[in-house]
Each structure stands twice: as structure tokens, then as C-alpha cells.
């Protein structure tokens, strides 16, 4: 490998690690400025001064700040986010337990967003200012303006309370809970593996509303981006050449133009997936969906700092990972970037 080729990955690695360190610094500082005394939370406010002092030293709070930060980094890197006050479990165990629920939701939403948003964006780019194009614009505009928690509640009100078409909050009906042994953590897959088709059906029904809700936001974003990418490509001269040569129109659009949109679209999909994790905080709260978002809000409301910061780090790290992944794909797929 040449020196030049080595330089790139090293630079990315340096960028990534400084960003991650910055992320840890922010969570560390947030943890320090909490007005709640962490020692008091452990020993209780009736503790004798000696006990208090002992606990303070045991928790490492007498050390200089930089040393505490150093210990904090090594703890986080070994997967130790401390213990949750609320559940009394190590925070990392809690996060690993709830994360698949969020992942299942976000993946389903992304699939919905891609399947609906990209064709919508393509059609409105091809037929600009048509009725469909206006529909796409309205969908996009609403996606940027509707409060997600409210849309979720309205969905529950219509499809659950009024029409009784879909089940209420939760991941599965109460009497089905805890029957299937988690293998993948995806309830739909696990129930299939166990052959519990009744539970599978129930889980899918429960998934429909929250996943379409998040999928709508993903679709709004993706259709907008696809439209502008496609318009840019369709204006290029190679498209004209292809048409002049007599290539069929559908091939020009779905082959030539879309092919050249693939790389930026993958980046957009990856970044959109990160945004869905964020949207899942409010969605999971509305739908009582037992994932990372609900865990985060419950910890927030109970001032469970270790759990809150643990979730923040995990989500931040996933964001970084997604960014890196899309950068990496970009490098592989675009010959100009090599």
C-alpha cells in the first residue's frame, strides 16, 4: 500500500476517536454538573460523616477531575456504564436487553421509508409539478412539521380507540408476554423460530402503527432527497445522450439516473436510520414500546443518571458508526472517491 492510501484511514480513525472522546467528555461533564449528590444517593441523607467520606473515596470522587475522567473512559471502553438506580442492573445489561426492540422498530420503519419514499421521489422528479409531485411536497412538509408524539397518539385514537382495527400500546398483548424465549431479540423473528404463529401475528399487528409512524418520517425525508438527486441527474447530458440513442425511458430513469443516485441515497438512508433512533424516544414513550427510548425516558424521569448517560453514549456511538459506515460505502462504490 502506498503512503497516500494509508493516510486516509488513519485520518478517519483520528477523527472518529477525537469525536468519541468529545462525546465522552460531554457525558462526563453532564454527569459532574448534576445537582444531585451521587454520594448522597448511595448512602442516604442520614449517613454519618465518616460513612459519607468513605463512600466518596470508594466512588473515586476525591481524585482530581482529570483522573476521574481517565477512569471514566476506561470504564466506558470496557462496557461499564455503572449501575442503574432504577432497575439495580448494570446499565449495559439493561441496554443490551432493550435494544433489539428499538432495532426491530427502526429497521421496519426504514424498510417502509425506502419502499415508499424512493419511488415517490423518483415519480415526482420525473413528472415535476404534477399532482403526485405536489403530494410528495405536502408529505415532506408535513413530515417536518408534525410532532411525532402527537401523530402517534392520534393514530392510537383512530385505529385503536375508535375503529379497533389495530392493537393498543405495547409490543405484544399482555397474555403473550414472556412466552417466547428471545433468540434474536426481534419478537417477530423469535416467535417464528418458536413456531408460535399466534404470537407472531399479534406482534406484527402491534408493530404496524409505530413502524408506519416512524416510516412516515423516513419516507418524508427520503422522498424529498430522492427527488432533488433525481432532478439533478435527469438534467445531465448523459441522460440526453441515452435518450437520443433510443434507450427506453424506464431504463433511462430506473437504470441510468437512479444508478447514479444510489451512492448519495445510501448515505441518506444511513443517516435517516440514525435519526429514527432519535424519533424512537418519543414514539416508544407513546406506544409503551419496551426499547431504548422508553428505557431512556423512564431513567430521565427518575433521575437515573448512569442509565441516561449510558443511553446517550450508545446512541451517540451508533450515530458515529452509521456515519463511518456511509463514508465507507461511499469510498467503495464511488470510483472517483478511491
Amino acid at each position: 500500500m502506498t503512503k497516500q492510501a494509508l493516510k486516509q484511514p488513519v485520518r478517519i480513525l483520528v477523527m472518529l476517536s477525537t469525536t468519541f472522546l468529545g462525546l465522552l467528555l460531554i457525558t462526563f461533564l453532564i454527569g459532574r454538573v448534576v445537582p444531585i449528590d451521587p454520594v448522597l444517593a448511595v448512602v442516604g441523607d442520614k449517613a454519618l460523616p465518616q460513612v459519607y467520606e468513605k463512600a466518596r473515596i470508594a466512588m473515586g470522587l476525591d481524585l482530581p477531575l482529570w483522573k476521574q475522567f481517565f477512569i471514566y473512559i476506561s470504564n466506558v471502553l470496557t462496557g461499564d456504564f455503572g449501575t442503574s438506580v432504577l432497575t439495580a442492573n448494570p446499565v449495559i445489561d439493561d441496554i443490551l436487553r432493550v435494544f433489539p426492540a428499538t432495532f426491530e422498530l427502526a429497521i421496519t420503519a426504514t424498510v417502509i421509508g425506502v419502499l415508499a419514499g424512493i419511488p415517490l421521489g423518483i415519480f415526482s422528479a420525473v413528472k415535476r409539478d404534477s399532482f403526485l409531485d405536489h403530494v410528495t411536497r405536502v408529505i415532506g412538509l408535513f413530515g417536518y412539521s408534525l410532532p411525532i408524539f402527537w401523530l402517534g397518539l392520534m393514530g392510537l385514537m383512530f385505529f385503536y380507540a375508535r375503529l379497533d382495527l389495530l392493537p393498543g400500546p405495547g409490543r405484544v398483548d399482555v397474555f403473550y408476554e414472556g412466552i417466547v424465549t428471545p433468540v434474536t431479540g426481534f419478537l417477530t423473528l423469535d416467535s417464528m423460530i418458536a413456531g408460535e404463529w399466534e404470537i407472531f401475528r399479534n406482534a406484527v399487528y402491534h408493530l404496524i402503527l409505530p413502524a408506519s409512524l416512524l416510516g412516515y418520517y423516513s419516507m418524508a425525508y427520503l422522498s424529498r432527497m430522492t427527488r432533488s438527486f433525481m432532478i439533478e441527474q435527469l438534467g445531465q447530458e448523459y441522460i440526453l445522450t441515452a435518450r437520443v440513442k433510443g434507450v427506453k425511458e424506464w431504463k433511462v430513469i430506473w437504470g441510468h439516473a437512479l444508478g447514479n443516485c444510489a451512492i448519495p441515497l445510501i448515505t441518506v438512508i444511513a443517516l435517516g436510520f440514525g435519526t429514527l433512533l432519535e424519533g424512537s424516544v418519543l414514539t416508544e414513550t407513546v406506544f409503551a414500546w419496551p426499547g431504548l427510548g422508553l428505557y431512556l425516558t423512564n431513567s430521565l424521569l427518575n433521575a437515573d443518571m448512569n442509565a441516561v448517560l449510558g443511553c446517550t453514549i450508545v446512541v451517540g456511538a451508533i450515530f458515529l458508526g452509521v456515519n463511518l459506515f456511509s463514508d465507507f460505502l461511499y469510498k467503495i462504490m464511488d470510483p472517483r472517491a478511491r
Binding site: I30, T275, F319
Partner: peptide, 24 residues
Amino acid sequence: MRITDIILAFPKLILALAFVSALG
């Protein structure tokens, strides 16, 4: 710009939640 990028790298709502939980 490093500082700017670090904060940009965070999901906005999650970071705001973490700050609010610290500030009350």
C-alpha cells in the same frame, strides 16, 4: 470546528435530554 463537529455528531434530541436531566 472539532468542537462543532462533536456536537453535530450527536443526535440533537438525545443530547438535549441528557442536558435537561442534568439541569433539571
